[in-house]
Design a protein around this nucleic acid. Structure first.
Lengths: 204, 204
DNA sequence: AATTTATTTAATCATATGATTAAATAAATT
DNA sequence: AATTTATTTAATCATATGATTAAATAAATT
């Protein structure tokens, strides 16, 4: 994955990735990308035809890299619910720490244009039919888990992991905790989130 | 608060509120606001001088209406931690249900321009000096609460309440649960979040 | 009623922005 | 080497966009 992998075309794509992830589709100007890639603006259209086509490539790759992990993880029949929670927290706290723009980028892009992306994501992951949800429902039947909507459990898990990355600037503003210190503290959550999720399962 | 309260100026402001909350500053075109308010574009600049000045009014009012609740709530010396959590969940689930754009609007606006708004919010609420955090630290001293960073507790509470509203389109996409059904389910969280927060306090 | 001030409109500007074109250059193929 | 194909550049377009201006109209004040 070296920067010279494919010359100009690759350089434009990586510049687009950077700028789109930072600003989103609308706020990104093709000239921003051209400048970031250090190329003439016309090259962008030569290689990718249009801003939208270039964006779609980035969006598809980002969705892919984000969801590929969770799909195999949540459909693994060899791990327990508890283990899945821990794997999920560890994997995504690492992923989102590495690129802090991924979470807001994906959420805001889907939010701006739900119809376009709901279909695309729907194919990737039918949460309802996942082995994870199957395990959860079995837990309820056995009496290990209180009979709450599994949606709450999913939302809580995703929220505990992802929300701090989305709200970081706002939380820094209201708590006056600087960004780097905040991000360090988030690492503790790899250990804490599985324990919290476990403890929540005693609530009915 | 009738729509005719102040004539044209008020009409423009309410149109601006609607469009800005939906799309944010950059993606909003002054012509969108003019059309929504059913006025000539020049009137917007006549009454408010510029797009930015109009935006700042809306942003300030929205910050105000969002944070005024939490400030008095978290500094109330007559309520327990537990009660504060319940009041917070009830108040904000109602507020965010009424206008589903508030949460993403505020978070994304601060995110786009942290420096501009950190100061503005910092004045409003010094979380660290709140009675809430004082109560929390006392709980740790007494041994009622495990010695974790209160930041986690705040992030978890805010996240459990706010995250579903931000991620709704994305969660609808991956769980194929329609928006209205999702929002209904969120009402259950007024009851559940205080119980979850309570149960998390047994984790160390 | 005459004058002043506030409101509204239509026309127009200057710049931003995504995209295209024609020409030049470089690389690959015959 | 000649020809074809791929890449790059500079110039230019068409439309979008925030803002201003001058003139017209309405409302308030004297």
């Amino acid at each position: 994955m070296s920067k010279k992998e494919k010359g100009t075309e690759y350089k434009i794509k990586e510049a687009a990735r950077k700028v789109f992830l930072e600003k989103g589709f609308t706020a990104t100007k093709t000239r921003d990308i051209a400048e970031e890639a250090d190329i003439n603006l016309a090259l962008l259209n030569y290689y990718f035809r249009s801003k939208k086509k270039l964006f779609d490539i980035i969006m598809t790759e980002t969705l892919q890299s984000f969801f590929s992990g969770v799909i195999s993880m949540f459909n693994d029949e060899r791990t327990t619910l508890k283990e899945k929670v821990s794997l999920f927290a560890n994997h995504y706290i690492d992923l989102l720490s590495e690129n802090q723009n991924i979470a807001p980028f994906l959420i805001n892009t889907v939010r701006e244009n739900p119809d376009e992306y709901i279909a695309k994501i729907g194919i990737l992951d039918k949460a309802k039919e996942s082995f994870f949800v199957k395990q959860f429902m079995e837990g309820i039947t056995k009496g290990d888990i209180p009979p709450i909507n599994p949606l709450h459990f999913m939302v809580n898990l995703i929220g505990l992991v992802v929300f701090p990355f989305i709200a970081q600037p706002m939380i820094s503003a209201i708590s006056s905790i600087p960004e780097d210190q905040f991000l360090n503290t988030l690492q503790e959550r790899k250990r804490l989130i599985p324990l919290w999720m476990e403890s929540m399962l005693s609530v009915k």
